[in-house]
Nucleic acid binder design. Sequence first.
DNA 1: CGCTAAATTCATCACATGATGAAAAACGCG
DNA 2: CGCGTTTTTCATCATGTGATGAATTTAGCG
Lengths: 211, 211
Amino acid sequence: MTSRRTPDRSTAGTPDRAAARTPGRRPGGPDTRGEILAAARESFAGKGFAATSLRAVAREAGVDAALIHHYFGGKDELFIESMSLPIDPRQVAATILDGPRDELGRRIVTVFLGVWESPDGQQRMKAILRSVVSSDEVARMMREGITQMIIHPVSQVLRVPDAELRVSLVASQLLGMALTRYLVELDPIATADVPTLIDRMAPAIQHYLTA
Amino acid sequence: MTSRRTPDRSTAGTPDRAAARTPGRRPGGPDTRGEILAAARESFAGKGFAATSLRAVAREAGVDAALIHHYFGGKDELFIESMSLPIDPRQVAATILDGPRDELGRRIVTVFLGVWESPDGQQRMKAILRSVVSSDEVARMMREGITQMIIHPVSQVLRVPDAELRVSLVASQLLGMALTRYLVELDPIATADVPTLIDRMAPAIQHYLTA
DNA sequence: CGCTAAATTCATCACATGATGAAAAACGCG
DNA sequence: CGCGTTTTTCATCATGTGATGAATTTAGCG
């Protein structure tokens, strides 16, 4: 299963950069740090924290593993830097809250899917979602961060009884959508187009918020 | 973070069984195999596949690591045996479909939460869900299973246009609920009581199915 | 009782991992 | 040009991992 990861270095390995050899600085201005970050994001998004090895990331970036430590310090720091939010939560909150109250559900779904549909956003959100679900310390921190940055403020503006329960019900539906569409890629949700999903989900979300 | 797991063998370690020492068969009829499985389930449910080490499982079961290989063969087999479904999907389908059509949503939620609320079911489902979330590869495998065992049959009985889309929307909400309540443990969903959740979710589910 | 089969531990192997420190090569400022 | 700084690789460590085979003890059948 995941046990024996074949290095396949012999024939088909590392097609990206041919293996660089001699030590020392490279000519030109290659954004090596950025390439490492990109490779790290991909691996964290695809396999999660525990199953991502620095060596694999380095190989993917066409770089020696020690360089990761040089630039980032360690696996933890690499991870944290890979996972910066692709959005500003406050701005998102503002966008959502700006408009008629009976279309709240639709705006929420639209913004949420918008973030996930952009390639960069999707990658980061996948990494975040995976890390939140894994039971590490970072996960717990993330969770509290999400609670404080999203659940609380939105609940406060909503001004209904049970606001927090309602908001977390919405969160559960949104997370479920992300899980099935982007992580599990369950058909036909994975292949449906965004407007369709919005049309279907908006009423349900709206119902959770104002019932 | 996850890097340095202290073995804490010195003073506080392994409170369960005192360290057994001499080799050879133990007297009495201890269900060692079962204890290994229980420990494995707990670890797989709590930390996922990659972050679970056989040595930790063995320690938790109060047993030498080699015994795991003796009983199960390897980590992969252990995992597979830990993850058997706690339910018979066909029976569940029958239960859900038996009753008035306009209470379909409520029955689905009730059955779903029922499985997750039982301790044994919860542990296995957590292990499964966690493994799905933590790696693309496992997710892909699971996807086919879910599609064939659940989406297709249920859709066929539903007899509405768009049945598969509707059913997978329901699935996304249910998975989202499991994710937030049992894995992420996001409040207040995690602490809400079951009847409340049923009351809130049933209409949304029903809406997805028959709108 | 005697003997085979099962259960259990121990001592290892081979390998991957994260991390570190030193050395080499190019850059860029003076 | 010269020289410090940055980027890069290499060699290496200590540790943890999954796995294997031999050794030891008990159970259980005849």
